Structure formats: structure tokens, C-alpha cells
Computed example of a mutant assay.
Amino acid sequence: MKVLVLTITAGGGHNSTARAVQRGLEALGVECEILDAYYYLSKALGDTVSGGYHFAVKSAYRTVYRQLEQRKSNSYKMSPTRLTNMALAQKLRKFTDEYDPDVIVCTHIFAGIMVDIMKQLGETRAKTVGILTDFSFHPYWEEALRFDYVVTPNEFLLDKALKKGFREDQILPFGIPIDPKFAVEIPREEAARASGLDPNMKTLLYMSGSMGHGDIVKTVEALDDSEFDFQTVVVTGNNAHALKKLKRMKLKKKFILLGYTDKVDVLTAAADVIITKPGGLTTSESLARRLPMILDDPIPGHEDRNTEFLLNFGAAMLVTDTFPIDEILYVFFKFPRRIELMKESIDLIRKPNSTATLCEFIAGLDVKAAAPSLTPMQKFASAFPKPGDKKK
């Protein structure tokens, strides 16, 4: 079996999911290739999407995302995104034809739209699996209804899937695929000592995401001024500027300051609580560790939806202007029962074995049957269906 995992660089989560799936499949003896679809098609396109994402999250992303959520679903009208990806899909076919995968996995909806177009035109024989990397459906997922399967973070998203137009048999509620090492339990004391922490002290882990998003310095100042006794590990991600500023600060409490690190599985095992922006991957890793979350500074759009999901299921608390982090810490330290209740809520939605479950499913797929090829006229008719035609 050969599996192609298509990703697109827009933040770090999609690529992390792709690597987790690749490691899981290779552990089962399955050949697996990762391809950043937009960078394969054009470096300029890849740079534009990656850089544009970083710019958008600081500007109009919330407004655009909300407008997409509110648009009327009409699969017979070509969106600008689908029209663009229709041309790109034909270029991507050069790779898929040569590699000839049995299964195509997509960790980003833009790659998913290209694959959906290829399925629409009968240009791939592969089984197709889409993966949600957030706790909600991106608005564009309604343009990728031809996928054989779509992996969702939880069973509770089935209603959303059906409203999007998917069938129940397409939905795989396996959880967001995370690095399999998060399924391996590490004793807290062992993890604390390995991280240079005092195992007898309460430990906070503060992560700002792969992009180093948020006002990290302001949050560290608030933690350092807290009346409660605890130690903190701060991970600034790729924000080297913030890390330099933190290292120049005179802090009263014990802080371990890190930039990018590949030891998050150990740090989450050592922590009692995590402070984080609500990215799909970091929150899934925290859920796997049964780690209560303090959510801060969500990226507008998809992270707003992650926040709603985690708050509604009792797995997190949210920092706001009127409910600042010192008041959340007061609740945690004065009322430890709140932590226990959050862990009980986490048990309802955590998926620590998400990657293994998905990879075992993929490895067991029947991939012998090839998709029927279409004539040029059939391809044209399929690409531009008439109103009232049923989607193939």
C-alpha cells in the first residue's frame, strides 16, 4: 500500500498532523509520502499562502471566516477558491499520476478541494481521507463532500458534519491525529525531573503555539505577580524576540524559558495546568495528557470555534479582559475540585490513540478497486453540473 499525505503550510498544525500520520503508517509497514501541495505547485504560491496566513490572523481573518460560515451553501456555484484549485488540481495530477497512491490523506481543506475536484473528474483511483485539525468544520469543507472519509475530533461533531452535507458513514470520529508519543504515559515526577522542575511544586506550562502568537511578555508578568506559589515553563515557539525579552526580565518566581522544543510530550506530563492559545494540535495533545487548559488569545475564526468547544465541554477556562489570568489562577489554587471536574470532562472527549486508530483504519482499507475513468465530455459535464443535478 502507498499513501500520499497532502498538507499546506498555514500555521504549524497541518504539517504536524501530516508527520504524525506518516510516522504511524510507517510503523505499520505502509509506504507514506508527505507533499506540501502548494509548495510543490509553486514556491511563490506556498510562500504567499504561508505568509498570508500569518498576516491574516492579525487583520481581517475573523470577519472573512464569519462571512464564509454564514454564506448559503450551494454546491453548484463555483467559489473563487474552487475555481482556483481546479486549475491547480490539474498540475497536482502530475505528482499523483507518477506516485499512484492507493490512499490520499489531506490535512488542509485547500488540498482537500483539489482532491475533491480530481474525484469529481474521475482522475484518481485512490481512497481519500480528509482530516479536521480543529474542533469544527472549516466553512470550505462543504466543497469537499466527495471524500470517502473525513476524520473528526470527536463524535459530537457528527451533527455539524450532516449539516455540511456529509453522510454518517463518511465520518470517522477518531480524533485529531497527534504524535503517538502523547499516548505513552510518563510519571509526573519523572517528567518534572527530566525538565529541570521541582516535582513537589505546582507546575504551569505556558505555550504560545508554533508561531509564538500573543502577548507573551504580558502574560509572564502576570504569572510572576501572582500571589500563589508555582513554577512555570514558557515555550515561545518561533518568537525569538519574545524569548530574548523574557531572558532580560528580572523574575521572582522560577521560570524555565524555551524557544522551540520537541519535548512537549514530557513537559505536558510534568505540568498541572497548561496556558495556551487554542490551536487544534496543542489542545488535542493537552487532552491526551488529561491536562486542564487556560485558553488565551485565540486566533480569530477556527480557534474561536475550538474555544467554544472546549469551554462547552468543561475542559478549559478562558482569559478575557474582564476575567484575567490572576482570577483563573485564584479558582485553580483555592478550589482544586475545579481541576478534578475539568479532568473528568476531559475524559469524555480525549482521543490519546487518535493516530494509531486512523493508521490502522487506513492500513485495513480495500484499495484494489480502481475508480472508473470518465470520457472528456463526462469530465466537462461533471465539472460544470446543471442546477438540480445530483452530486456524483
Results as ranks from 00 to 15, higher is better:
E360S: 10
E340A: 08
D347Y: 05
P336Y: 14
F323C: 05
R337P: 12
L358Y: 14
V331P: 01
Y330C: 12
V331Q: 04
V331T: 06
S345D: 13
L358A: 04
I339S: 08
E344Q: 10
L348C: 02
E360I: 02
I349L: 05
F335T: 15
D326K: 06
L341R: 13
P336H: 13
C359W: 04
I349A: 00
I328L: 04
K334C: 10
F333G: 00
I362F: 00
S354G: 09
P352M: 03
D326M: 08
D347Q: 01
I325F: 00
V331F: 07
I325L: 04
V331M: 04
I325C: 02
E340W: 11
V331W: 08
L358C: 15
M342L: 12
C359F: 13
R337A: 13
I346N: 02
P324M: 11
P352D: 03
I339Y: 06
F323A: 01
F323E: 02
L358G: 09
F335M: 12
A356S: 11
E344D: 11
I328S: 02
K343Q: 12
A363G: 14
R337F: 15
I362S: 00
S354F: 09
A356E: 13
D326N: 12
F335A: 10
K343A: 11
I346S: 02
N353D: 10
S354V: 14
T357C: 10
D326E: 13
I346H: 02
L348T: 02
F361D: 11
F333D: 00
P324I: 14
L365S: 12
T357D: 10
I325T: 01
D326Y: 05
F361P: 11
E344H: 09
E340I: 14
F361A: 10
A356N: 09
I349W: 08
I325V: 05
E360N: 08
M342G: 04
P324W: 05
D347E: 09
F332W: 15
E360Y: 01
